[in-house]
Write a protein that binds this DNA or RNA. Structure first.
Length: 94
DNA sequence: AAGCTGACTCGCT
DNA sequence: GAGCGAGCCAGCT
């Protein structure tokens, strides 16, 4: 576990149910310009946080995890349509 | 220290 | 929209 990873996990863990954040948003919140680095953290420690609340800039969930993420998001009441989250509605302001 | 990889993003076609 | 290329940076050889 690295300091960077801990900051990322803190942010993701703070996202309320039914709301989402893009990788870019998380990166910005932890003071980084590397959304991909955020992805690496979730790949390793995603099971410790609500990883499904982090989506691509398009609103689609992480590639390879779309079905599971969409299911969880719908259960939380997020507005999902055509395989992607409605960012205008569900994006969390922080 | 240099290089590679990846749960990304953005601009162009 | 969808497909492509370039830029991004943390972590691990």
């Amino acid at each position: 576990m690295t300091p960077f990873a801990r900051r990322v996990l803190d942010v993701v863990d703070a996202i309320p149910p039914g709301r989402v954040l893009t990788y870019g948003d998380v990166a910005e919140l932890v003071g980084s310009a590397a959304p991909r680095a955020v992805g690496m953290v979730l790949a390793r420690h995603g099971d410790e946080v609500p990883w499904h609340r982090v989506v691509l800039a398009s609103g689609a969930p992480a590639p390879g995890h779309a079905p599971r993420a969409l299911l969880l998001l719908r259960e939380e009441g997020a507005h999902v349509r055509a395989g992607r989250v409605d960012l205008d509605r569900a994006r969390w302001d922080g």
